[in-house]
Amino acid sequence: MLRKFRDGIKGRAGKVLLAIIIVPFVLFGAESLLTGGGGPAAVLEVNGQEVDGAQLGQELLMLRNQTAASMGENLDYAALSEEKLRPQAIDRLIEAALVEQAFDILALSTPERMIQQSIVQTPDFQVDGKFSNQQMSRVLADNGFNLNTLKQRLAEEMRIGQLRSAIAQTSFVAQANTDLLIKILNEKRRADLVEIGPEQVQPAEPGTAEIEQFYAEHQTDFVTRRSVDVEYLLIDQQDLLEPVSDDDVRAEFDLQIAQFEASERRRVAHILLEVGEEQSEQAAIEQAQALSARIEAGERFADLAKQYSADSVSAEDGGDLGFTARDGTFP
C-alpha cells in the first residue's frame, strides 16, 4: 500500500501530483481535506452506524494516492477527481463497516499483536532486513499517515481477509447432488463377454483400392515434421571491444557532468500537536508558541518532543524524522 504511493511520486508527474496534494494543506490546513472545513458531519449510515465526512475525506485521499501511484508518469487528472473516486471510497467504507459489524456479531477481533507483527515485517519499514522506527516514521510521513491510521487500515484489511477466507472455505451440498451420488454408488450394470481366438479370425490381405482409401482418410497420420537447414554466424562481443583511454573517459565525463546535480538533504525533527475534541486549534497554537519559547530559552528540543509530541514513534527518538531532500515532504 505505501510502496505504490512512494514509487508513484517519483519523476516530474509525481511532483506535480504531490504539489496538488500539498497546496490545500498549506492554504487551508489538513482538516479542509478531510472535513471540508466544517465539523465531522455524517455522510452515510450503514445499519445504524454513521460514517462522517472525516472518514470519507481520508478514504478519498488514500484512494487518490493509490490510483496516482498505479498510473506512473501518465497521470489522468480526470480519473483523480472527487467525482470519479467518491463512489469507490463510499463502497470501501460500506464494506469496512459491514465487516466490522459482522465481526461484532460473531464476537471476533483482530489481535493487536498480529497488527504489530505485520508492521514489523513490512519491507518498507526495514533497513538492512531489520525493522527501523526511524524508517517507519519517514515512510509514514512521506505518505501522509500516522501510526494510528496505519493500524486502523491494517486491522480493516485483516478483518476483510479473514471474513472472505471463512466464507470461501465454507461449503454445502445440494440435495440434487446427494441424490445423484447415491444413484452412482448403487448403480449396477450387466456385461456379456465373448472370447474370440485367433483360429476363429480369417486373415485377409487388403487390396490396392482399400489401401488408397485408408490413406486418403488418414493423411494427417502420415505427415512428417517440417525441417530446415540453418546457417549462422557467431559474433563474440569480446571480439568487438575496443580499449578506451583515460582521456576519452574524462572527456565524456566532462560532457555529461552538467546533467547531474546533488540535491540538498536536511535532517528534520518535529513535535506533533493534535487538534481534536481534547484540544482546540487555538490551544494547540498557544502550546506550540510556549514550546518554542522554552526551546529558545535553552531547553532541549528532544526532551520536549518526548514529553509533548503526539507522534509516539518519533517521540522516542526526540522527534527525529531522519534526513529528507529539500524538495521532499518537509522543508
Rank of each mutant, 00 (worst) to 15 (best):
A269V: 08
A269M: 03
S280A: 04
V228R: 14
E252M: 07
Q289A: 07
L304Q: 03
A290P: 04
Q256K: 12
R294T: 00
I295V: 05
V275A: 05
A269W: 08
V268T: 08
V228D: 14
E281A: 15
V249N: 10
Q256F: 03
H270N: 08
A302R: 00
L255D: 13
Q287V: 00
E296I: 12
G298Q: 07
E261M: 01
D248S: 11
V249M: 14
L304C: 00
D236I: 10
G298N: 02
Q237T: 12
R226T: 10
R226K: 13
L304N: 00
S245K: 07
Q279L: 01
L291M: 01
D246M: 00
D236K: 02
V268G: 04
R225M: 07
L255M: 11
H270F: 08
Q282S: 11
R250W: 15
D239K: 02
E252I: 02
A258I: 06
R265S: 07
P243W: 08
A269E: 01
A251F: 10
R225I: 09
A290W: 08
L255T: 15
I295S: 03
A284N: 03
A269T: 05
G298F: 05
S280E: 01
S292E: 14
R300N: 10
S227E: 07
L304F: 08
E274Y: 09
L304Y: 04
E281P: 09
V244L: 11
V244R: 09
L272T: 13
E296R: 13
S292D: 13
L304R: 02
A283E: 13
V228S: 15
E277K: 10
Q238I: 12
E274Q: 15
L304V: 00
V230Q: 14
A293S: 02
L272N: 07
R226P: 11
L272Y: 07
R294P: 00
L241Y: 06
D247N: 06
L240R: 03
S292L: 13
A251V: 04
A258H: 09
D248I: 14
Q256C: 02
F301R: 08
Q282V: 00
E261K: 07
R265D: 13
R226V: 06
Q289K: 11
E277N: 11
I257E: 10
A262K: 08
D303N: 03
F253E: 12
S280M: 04
D239P: 03
F260Y: 15
A251I: 11
A283T: 12
K306A: 05
I257A: 14
E299N: 05
D246Y: 05
F253D: 13
V244C: 04
S292K: 13
A262N: 12
Q307R: 04
